[in-house]
Structure formats: structure tokens, C-alpha cells
Design a protein around this nucleic acid. Structure first.
Length: 775
DNA sequence: CTTTCTATGCTTTTT
DNA sequence: GCATAGAAAG
């Protein structure tokens, strides 16, 4: 197969340019993944490069998986030698092998935002920092920025000599790092920092990776931070074959430390760099592209480019002005319904985008009412849910009891009568004797905790007993044992039945994921590609995999559902029909960006808008609401300036109505008779609109409040679980297979069912949780 | 030690 | 408006 087949001139050139630094400025939808895939194939097939020598770095696991499968299809045999991974998982892989050289144990655990906060809280307490003046999250933000910029504790301390206000922050930075080290843990930022540190301090390690990764490709380069830039530079430092792909107009992660200069200055840093622009868009209609171009052209300091398409004009952009967020949600739901019945679209053809996660709730409620299947991407990551984190903390403790955060999390979950007083005593004992928290537990009788010693002993024995279970090697089995022996399900203090059910479903989902992992890893060799690697337990690898998944990674393209997500999450995706909601000053662009002195913030919002618009293939719909609840208060916003930046002629006016912009004004004035002078809705400063006129639809709010928690991503089954089997019936279980029901006992919250499985033996489980099927 | 009540603050955006 | 954290009561 010809690797150049179907490529345009610029794409082909990008594929052919394999030596030296290359910057591909790839506009949205310009086929960059295709170029990267073909380029990889070209390297292997035409240039005789060993797949082993190629590294491709992407932003999300989902993007990595997609690139992997496309490369596999194109290259076939041998493609598995290519490293395709995210920055973070690449770093983990390297650190698992070599981090002992920095004084960490290779079995380090990875802390998420939640764990970070726990640690920082402790740090603040020990340093007696007033968290009213300096909240933990502010310290954590500073720490994260230091790390993004590769500023070490020592350097930060030097800086703090000049700036008195930084003193507490820097003191906390130091103690935070020391605590992490003691816990043998790294946070997300550390993964990058420590890898850079490793490369800088161990030239022979760096050298081995330089020789391995002779050809490097980095996707979404505009979103790299300084640490990532340094990492890539180090790796490419010898062979210099570095190809970066990105679009400065799609740089939307500045808040997270992304340094747009990395892409803007690429040509200056790599003097002999070749630059190729991909401007032909294969995704959207010209109308959509014109809108995107018009909006983004208001930004300064960008690399000039202009997308074009040969797909034709397409239909006009739709614009809807709504009274409030409920009307807006109705509009979205109705549009989807109508479009589906008229054009026979699938649910998966639609995406609804918004600026902040908080906006998803109302949309979700309307989707539930209408029965349209949907998935909310983002929000609370699956692995960040309380019950999941609890169980993972058990697994971590079983795997590596050095992680104090995990141990403390579960020591009294479910309730064992071990309270704060006891924990404090143990903490002090551990600190005084330089022990880990778990080691202190083992010596509880010496720590002067009185009667609690017995309970602690039982807890230690529980963990030790579960650790025995490890040898059997199945994570799913281990999880079952944990649930069984701790009585976790019975001990859950859920607010209500729906909550309980949601959590049970999440737990089941975790077991399913574990079972899938077990299956994939059956008999897998733990030794990796270099000799001398210590074999790591299945459990460790499971925990590692789970630590680095984003919510977007879990979305299944085969599901026929409408996707609801933030504009950020939508990056890299495309849909035939896209709704961008909440197009209001103060929402999008957000309040912070409007207030900020820094004009760059508004430009970032604009780029975000550009990203949103360019997700649409055929149809784009923008909507805004006159009144919206923000944090329990009704706010009145003007329509977003981004709407005004789109030329009127691109809006739909097929029905003989006034064109888009005029329509806004008309509706704004007409919607509320009492609204006084019919101000044009643009350029109305929020301050002028502070006084509410008319109530913002109290009825609607009441109606939805009763709906409450909706299990995300789960089918919209309703009603309580009913048991359709009786004692003596044959049933099947998703994991244990078939068996015979021995007894059914009504428990506190649910039926407790005992089943004698044909292969898995006798098991006791809760009916609502086990989901047994009658045969 | 646990439960219940009250106050606070949160909203950008995520690997 | 909601979730969380901390205080107070049991």
C-alpha cells in the first residue's frame, strides 16, 4: 500500500520530511493524525527505520489508542515496537525502571488531585499556616506552577528570599515534597519533573533513551509546558529528529502551565526547522470554517493561517436566544429529537458543549426527561469517585503500605471505631520513630492508644490476610475479597437509595474493569523491554493503569449516545452536529477572563471558542440564555462577544426571519414585555443589568429538583431492582458464572443472597449489587 | 466515637 | 445550589 495515497501536497511533504526538526502547523480537521500515521509507516517501510526507534507522544490515552490502532492497520507486523503513549504514561514507564537512582522506590504510587489536597492539608497544619489567608488549593496551584516551570524547592527558596509573601508557600512546597518522598509517592507534575531530573543527573540513562528514540513525534504541541518541552528537547538532543504537530490557535491549557511559546518559538529554538502548514480542512463546511476564522482573527500574536474546505457552504449557523438555561436545554433536546426524526441521525452524531462542568446539570435533567441516551464526559472522573477511591486505597495499602494517604483513608472506612484521636496519636508515634503510618499501626500497643489497640490489630490482620490473597494474581478476585471481608457495601453511608445504587454500580464497574485487566494480563510476562527490571505484581500494574486515565478515555465511540462535555474535553473530537451552549459574557468568555487585566486570558477563551466551532462537521448551533443561575443566584448576561464576531451572513435565516443578529435583538426585546427600553443585547455591561426583572422561572426549578442524582453513563433503567429468582433457582453471575441459589435473606438495605457457584464455590452477595440473572 | 447541624466557598478548564 | 468541612451534641 502506498503511504502517500490520498494525501495533499503539504501532507505528503510532511510525511516525506523525516530528518531534522519539523513543525507541522495543523489547523483543525486538517488530517494531522493521518499525517502522523503515514509518516510512521513511511519511516518504517521506506526509510527502513526500526519501529523500536520511534516514539509518538499524544495528549490523552484515547488519542494514543487511536493512533496505535491506525498505525497497526497501516504498518502491520512490527508496529508493536513503537512507543505510542501520553507524556505521563511514558514518564511512569521510565521512572518505574530508574527512579531508584533518585532515591525513590520503584514501586512509587501516583497521587491525584484529591490525594494532593490531603497531603497539603497536613502540611499546612504542621507548618501552622493560616489556610484562611492561604488556602491549600492556592499553595497547590503555586507548587504545580513551580513544577511546570521546573523550579526546584531550592530555587523557589532562593526566590522567596526576595519576596517575603512567598515564604509560607515555599515552606509548604518543601514539606510537601518531603512528605511525598516519605510516602514513596509522586504527583502528576512530579512524573515529568522527576523524569527530567533523572535525565539530567544520569547521562547514561538519557543516552540509552536517546539512542532508542531516534524519531520523535509530539502531538498537540501547543499544549506542552516547560517541563514537557525540556523532556522532549533532552530526548531529541542527539539525533534531532523531532517532529511536532500543533495549532497555536488551539492552545487552551495555559492555566495548566502550557507554554504557547513552545510552538511559537519552535523555529527560533531549532534553527534549521522546517515548517509546514496544513490549511485544508476535511471536516467542516465552509460556513463553519468562515465562522471559526472570523472569530480567531480577533486574536493577536498568532501564526496567520486560514482554513478552507472543498465541502461547500453547508447550512447556516443556528443561533438561539433563550430566556433561561432550562429553555436552552429544551431547545437542545427538541432540536436533537427533530433532527433525528427528520434526518434519521444517530444520537452519537450530536455533541453538546459548554464552558464549565456546572452547566451540565440542567442539560442532563432535560435529557433524562426526554429519554435521549447521553453521556456526560468529565466532571468527576470515574476513578475519583469516593467509593472507587476507597477501594483503590485498599488495593494500594495491600500493594504498598508505604502510602500513608491510602492507609489513613481506609483505616475507618467502613467504620471500625477508629477515630481522629487515635489517628493523631499514631501519626505522632510514626513521626517520632520515623516509621510509616502502617508500621506504626503494627506497633499500636506501644503508641499509647489504649483500647483502640485491639481494633487496630484487627485492621492490620485484615490487610495482611488480604495480602496473602495477592498470590492468586487476580485483581478482580482480590477486590471481591476486600468487599467481602471489610463489609464495605453494608457499611456504605449513602444519602439515599439512588445514591446507594449508583455507588454499587460504580463498584461493579470497577470489578468489571479489574476482570478485563486480569484477562488481558493473563500469563503476561511482567519483565519489560530491558533486562534487570524487577517483576511487578499484577496489582501494581493495575493501580498504575488506573491512575492515569482521564474521563474522556473511557468514552466508547460505539455507544450511540449524545455526548455532553466541556469545550476543553472536546478537543480532538468531531461531530456532525454540535451545540455550543451558554454563549454569554461572563460565562463564555468566563468571568475571570473578562475581569483580568491580562488580555491573553481573553484570547485563550477565544481559542476555546475556535476549538468548539471547529468540532462541527455539518451543523453548528450557538445558544445563550438571558437569565442563568450561577451559584444559586440569577445572573443576567449579555450575549457573548464571540457571537458578534461571526459575520451575520453566516447565520441561518432560511425561514424568512430576520438574520441572526437582528433576531437576537428582537427576541431580547420581545421576550419580556417588562424589560423596559429594548437595549441591544450586545455591549450591555453586566453591571447595568444587575436588577432582576421578572422571576426566573421558579416552577421549572422546583420540578427538576425532585429528580436528583442520575447515574452517569448508565442505562436509564428505572425502579428498584427486583429479584426474579428464588431459593433453588439456577442463576448466572457476570464473573462467577452459573450456580444455584442457596438462600435469600432480607438484609438492612437489600436482599442478601447466597449462591453455590459451579466453579467459584459458595458466595454471599447483595442482590442489588450482584445482578444475578435467572436462567 | 459518631451523628447531626451549620457555615462556607465554589467555578473555569485536566493529565 | 450543592458539597464539603468543621462544630456541637449525643
Amino acid at each position: 500500500m502506498d503511504v502517500f495515497e490520498g494525501l495533499n501536497k503539504e501532507q505528503a511533504e510532511a510525511v516525506r520530511t523525516v530528518n531534522g526538526p519539523l513543525l507541522i502547523l495543523a489547523g483543525a480537521g486538517s488530517g494531522k493524525t493521518r499525517v502522523l500515521t503515514c509518516r510512521t509507516a513511511y519511516l518504517i517501510k521506506e526509510c527502513g527505520v526500526n519501529p523500536f526507534n520511534i516514539l509518538a507522544i499524544t495528549f490523552t490515552n484515547k488519542a494514543a489508542a487511536e493512533m496505535r490502532s491506525r498505525i497497526d492497520n497501516m504498518v502491520g507486523f512490527g508496529s508493536e515496537g513503537i512507543w505510542v503513549s501520553t507524556f505521563h504514561s511514558m514518564c511512569v514507564r521510565i521512572l518505574r525502571r530508574y527512579i531508584d537512582r533518585l532515591g525513590f522506590d520503584n514501586s512509587f504510587s501516583i497521587y491525584d488531585a484529591d490525594d494532593q489536597k490531603t497531603v497539603m492539608k497536613e502540611v499546612a497544619k504542621r507548618l501552622e499556616i493560616n489556610t484562611k489567608e492561604l488556602p491549600e488549593r492556592a499553595i497547590l496551584a503555586s507548587v504545580s506552577h513551580y513544577k511546570d516551570e521546573l523550579v526546584s524547592v531550592e530555587e523557589a527558596e532562593r526566590e522567596a528570599l526576595e519576596d517575603f509573601t512567598l515564604r509560607d508557600t515555599v515552606k509548604a512546597y518543601r514539606l510537601y515534597q518531603e512528605t511525598l518522598k516519605k510516602n514513596n509517592a509522586l504527583d502528576f507534575d512530579d512524573l515529568l519533573v522527576k523524569t527530567v531530573q533523572l535525565f539530567r543527573s544520569c547521562p547514561e540513562v538519557l543516552d540509552s533513551y536517546r539512542d532508542r528514540f531516534r524519531y520523535i513525534m509530539v502531538d498537540e504541541y501547543q499544549d506542552t509546558n516547560t517541563a514537557q518541552f525540556e523532556l522532549v528537547s533532552l530526548l531529541a538532543g542527539k539525533h534531532g529528529n523531532i517532529c511536532v504537530v500543533g495549532d497555536d490557535d488551539q492552545s487552551i491549557y495555559k492555566f495548566r502551565g502550557a507554554n504557547i511559546r513552545n510552538i511559537l518559538d519552535f523555529e527560533r529554538v531549532y534553527e534549521n526547522a522546517c515548517v509546514i502548514r496544513l490549511e485544508q480542512n476535511y471536516r467542516s463546511t465552509q460556513n463553519i470554517l468562515d465562522a471559526a476564522n472570523a472569530v480567531i482573527s480577533n486574536n493577536r500574536g498568532r501564526k496567520e493561517k486560514s482554513l478552507w474546505s472543498d465541502r461547500g457552504r453547508g447550512s447556516g449557523i443556528r443561533l438561539r436566544y433563550c430566556d433561561n438555561a432550562y429553555d436552552e436545554a429544551d431547545y437542545v433536546v427538541d432540536s436533537i429529537k427533530r433532527k433525528r426524526s427528520l434526518a434519521g441521525s444517530d444520537f452519537r452524531d450530536f455533541a453538546v458543549l459548554f464552558r464549565t462542568n456546572a452547566q451540565s446539570r440542567i442539560l442532563e435533567e432535560k435529557f433524562v426527561m426526554s429519554g435521549i441516551p447521553y453521556t456526560v464526559v468529565g466532571g468527576v472522573n470515574f476513578y475519583a469517585r469516593r467509593e472507587i477511591k476507597d477501594l483503590l486505597a485498599y488495593l494500594k495499602t495491600i500493594d504498598n503500605a508505604r502510602d500513608d494517604v491510602a492507609v489513613k483513608r481506609i483505616i475507618n472506612v467502613p467504620r471500625r471505631g477508629i477515630g481522629a484521636v487515635t489517628v493523631n496519636k499514631l501519626e505522632k508515634y510514626a513521626l517520632d520513630n520515623s516509621l510509616t503510618f502502617f508500621e506504626a499501626l503494627k506497633e499500636a500497643d506501644k503508641a499509647g492508644v489504649g483500647k483502640a489497640a485491639l481494633k487496630l490489630k484487627a485492621f492490620v490482620e485484615l490487610i495482611m490476610g488480604l495480602r496473602e490473597e495477592l498470590v492468586n494474581g487476580s485483581v478482580a478476585d482480590l477486590l471481591d475479597r476486600v468487599l467481602d471481608e471489610t463489609g464495605y457495601i453494608e457499611g456504605m453511608d449513602a444519602a439515599d437509595d439512588i445514591d446507594l445504587k449508583t455507588r454499587s454500580e460504580n463498584i461493579e464497574e470497577l470489578i468489571n474493569k479489574a476482570a478485563a485487566f486480569d484477562e488481558e494480563n493473563e500469563g503476561a510476562d511482567t519483565a519489560e523491554d530491558l533486562p534487570g527490571a524487577s517483576a511487578r505484581s499484577v496489582l501494581s500494574r493495575f493501580l498504575e493503569e488506573v491512575a492515569l486515565v482521564a474521563d474522556i478515555d473511557n468514552t466508547d465511540d460505539n455507544d450511540n449516545r449524545v455526548l455532553l462535555m466541556t469545550l476543553h474535553s472536546a478537543k480532538g473530537l468531531e461531530f456532525p452536529c454540535v451545540f455550543i451552549t451558554g454563549m454569554e459574557e461572563g460565562i463564555f468568555p468566563g468571568f475571570g477572563a473578562l475581569q483580568s487585566e491580562d488580555e491573553m486570558e481573553l484570547e485563550e477563551e477565544r481559542r476555546l471558542c475556535y476549538v468548539g466551532i471547529t468540532r462541527a462537521k455539518d451543523e453548528l448551533s450557538l445558544s445563550c440564555a438571558r437569565a442563568r443561575m450561577v451559584r444559586g443566584e440569577t445572573h443576567y448576561h449579555a450575549a457573548s462577544r464571540f457571537i458578534a464576531e461571526i459575520p451575520e451572513k453566516l447565520f441561518q435565516d432560511g425561514t424568512g426571519q430576520a438574520s441572526g443578529r437582528a433576531r437576537i435583538n428582537r427576541q431580547a426585546a420581545g421576550a419580556l414585555p417588562s424589560s423596559g427600553p429594548s437595549l441591544p443585547y450586545y455591549n450591555v455591561k453586566p453591571a447595568l443589568m444587575g436588577k432582576p426583572y421578572g422571576t426566573a422561572d421558579g416552577q421549572d426549578r422546583q420540578r427538576v429538583r425532585s429528580l436528583k442524582l442520575i447515574p452517569r453513563g448508565s442505562d436509564l433503567k428505572k425502579g428498584p431492582e427486583e429479584i426474579d429468582y428464588a431459593e433453588g433457582d439456577r442463576v448466572s453471575h457476570i464473573k462467577f458464572g452459573t450456580g444455584t441459589v442457596q438462600s435469600i435473606v432480607k438484609g438492612v438495605r437489600d436482599y442478601e443472597v447466597t449462591v453455590d457457584f459451579d466453579t467459584a464455590g459458595v458466595r454471599k452477595m447483595l442482590a442489588g449489587f450482584a445482578k444475578l440473572k435467572k436462567m
